[in-house]
Design a protein around this nucleic acid. Structure first.
Lengths: 207, 207
DNA sequence: TTAATTAAAGCGAGCGCTCACTCATTTTAC
DNA sequence: GTAAAATGAGTGAGCGCTCGCTTTAATTAA
């Protein structure tokens, strides 16, 4: 199909990315071969290399598309919610729900990406950047809460935000490797309660 | 050196394991070659295969030696501490301190292992087993605290223990990939405070 | 309307290389 | 002298990526 619309090119790219994600989920990044991805996408290896310069680049593009718009989406979905705590709570719920329920494959994909980040500088930089944006956004909500007198003044927003995202990742890690008997709902509930206890102690909460 | 003592054989094994860890830390598991490990250990590839049947087996043995005795060690180091909360707190401090300060290479190694666990069933099973033991042990402390009336009755010990270990891992993950500006001490402090607030609410704490 | 032309899209065998693992040979401790 | 330990060149499978060729859809010419 020569001289094809830009739309069509974008569709092809997405097809390849979908195939790549599915292969990465099944075998991890290193064990996934370019032949695998080509076969799954219904294209040839050569065609695939017309859209992406390297295998690593496929992974990076996937990361960007999966995580790049997360802060913006969270912002859009929670901008009408009044109060820092309800907004923070909603953000965590949306994020965790997305990783574990709505798009569980994305959750597992992120873990694969972390596995690769350990040995690949480019992937590591990509992941770090995307996560930093997320942490910054959560921290900004906490800061607002502190400024509004809703949260305990001493809370270090960046520390807490990092912990939250770290916890989400750690738990996704266990869960994605199929550790049996994990009650994700109970964990989310307990986390939120712990967090609320910490950020808004009784004195403030009862006002 | 033929007809050598069992002691000497054990030493050789340990030499190889040390070399392997150092190579794994530098390049990750997949990118580390058997040649690398042989070179670092000062032995030949052939000699190495006299002590370990596969590369994967080296990783598994390393895992077992690093993590297998953790619950037992924690128990020994904290058995004299009275009260569930002080003991739990000490366990977390010891564990985190071990991962981040005393043996930071072990912390980073565990992350490499997780990366590999995602694509290798054997490694995954090994890691899951080792971590389950740890979670069980922490949960048992929490259960004791509940039984003694020291902790809130409703607390689900296994959920909390999983969260704690998951959090430790998630945070180690960020930290090990060199995410800048992370204040590990502040995180540990905040975590412990959150946990204490949750497990021993004011009503109980003020007794 | 149809045929000829064109340029991009698609193909896949094959190249060059890496790597886990082997084995015939040599070295070593007793 | 001997049996175990150590050696390291070799093996063969597998992989990312290339490149010369074919196919196809849009464009142009008749």
């Amino acid at each position: 199909m020569p001289k094809v619309t830009p739309d069509h090119k974008e569709q092809r790219k997405q097809t390849i990315l979908d195939a790549a994600q599915s292969v990465f989920l099944g075998k991890g990044y290193q064990l996934a071969t370019v032949d695998d991805i080509a076969a799954r996408s219904g294209l040839s290896v050569g065609a695939l290399y017309r859209y992406f310069p390297t295998k690593s680049d496929i992974m990076l593009t996937l990361l960007e598309r999966k995580l790049g718009r997360a802060p913006e989406i969270l912002q859009r979905l929670t901008q009408d919610i009044a109060g820092a705590w309800p907004r923070l709570q909603r953000c965590i719920e949306i994020f965790v729900h997305a990783l574990h329920v709505r798009h569980p494959s994305t959750g597992r994909f992120l873990i694969v990406a972390w596995g690769e980040a350990i040995q690949d500088n480019t992937v590591r930089k990509g992941l770090q950047g995307r996560y930093a944006e997320l942490v910054d956004y959560l921290a900004s909500i906490i800061d607002e809460g502190i400024a509004a007198g809703e949260f305990l003044p001493g809370a270090e927003s960046w520390v807490i935000a990092s912990m939250l995202v770290g916890m989400a990742d750690g738990i996704t890690l266990y869960w994605s490797t199929g550790t049996p008997g994990m009650d994700l709902r109970a964990m989310r509930f307990t986390t939120l309660q712990m967090l609320r206890n910490y950020l808004t102690p009784l004195a403030i909460r009862e006002e």
